[in-house]
């Protein structure tokens, strides 16, 4: 599955050079960090949301995108691969320079400024002034789906899928809280400027409203 996505990503880049003058405004290239996780689901969700999805595994591929999604997966694995393949510095720089970024679940952990219980050697990439707790909702038998209200998303409740999900323990002053799990005080969606993060997996449901929100951020910034 990753093979197909990666091939599509690079094919899209090849034709992009020629067509960029025409389509860059209408179809900005948005990357999905394709080291591990549910990359294909995010690529599909971005395609449905009117942008050109690009699989990103190398520093030079990161240069060519207007925004980046960090998918669900294992945050410890993705972090190790970021380190081993030399992506950390450039990821930090691009996010610091204002590149829109969206992380779901593992992606939220990677985009957090602080991880309160990191695995050995695991670091935060940073980008959003929050502290996350990994696997906060428990093990897989505790994983669940439920309806949520997400601020900034019209049209009724959002069906959110939580899988061994993190939650946000603390937010800094510049962070907007977009969703709290009903009946609790657990923060599960946040935004700070062009950086968006959810503890749940919008890519696993056909509802594209969260990806559309991110695509709007990319369009505003590009």
């Amino acid at each position: 599955m990753v093979t197909g996505s990666a091939a599509q990503g690079s094919a899209a880049q090849g034709s992009a050079a020629k067509a960029s003058a025409v389509t860059s405004q209408a179809m900005p290239p948005v990357g999905v960090l394709a080291l591990q996780g549910d990359v294909a689901e995010h690529l599909r969700a971005l395609r449905d949301s009117g942008v050109r999805p690009v699989a990103v595994r190398r520093p030079e591929e990161l240069d060519r995108v207007d925004g980046l999604v960090i998918p669900g997966g294992e945050s410890t694995t993705i972090w190790k691969l970021i380190e081993v393949f030399g992506l950390a510095e450039q990821l930090r720089k691009r996010v610091a320079d204002g590149m829109p970024a969206f992380g779901s679940c593992a992606g939220m952990i990677l985009l957090a400024d602080q991880i309160c219980d990191p695995a050995s050697g695991q670091q935060a990439l940073g980008g959003i002034d929050i502290t996350v707790r990994r696997n906060a909702f428990g093990r897989q038998v505790d994983s669940f789906e439920r309806d949520l209200d997400v601020r900034g998303i019209a049209g009724g409740p959002y069906r959110a899928v939580f899988i061994r999900a993190p939650w946000v323990e603390a937010v800094g002053p510049g962070v907007d809280v977009l969703a709290i799990e009903p009946g609790t005080s657990r923060i599960v969606a946040v935004r700070q400027g062009p950086v968006l993060a959810t503890a749940f997996h919008p890519e696993l449901t056909p509802d594209r409203r969260v990806h559309q929100m991110f695509v709007e951020i990319v369009r505003e910034r590009s």
Binding site: V2, R146, I163
Partner: peptide
């Protein structure tokens, strides 16, 4: 509470495997 959490759905079970992809 309304819209209570549902565990063990196909989406939650299959989605867990999606998170392992490429690994």
């Amino acid at each position: 509470t309304s819209g209570a959490a549902q565990k063990g759905t196909s989406r939650v079970k299959r989605g867990m495997a999606d998170m392992l992809k490429g690994g």
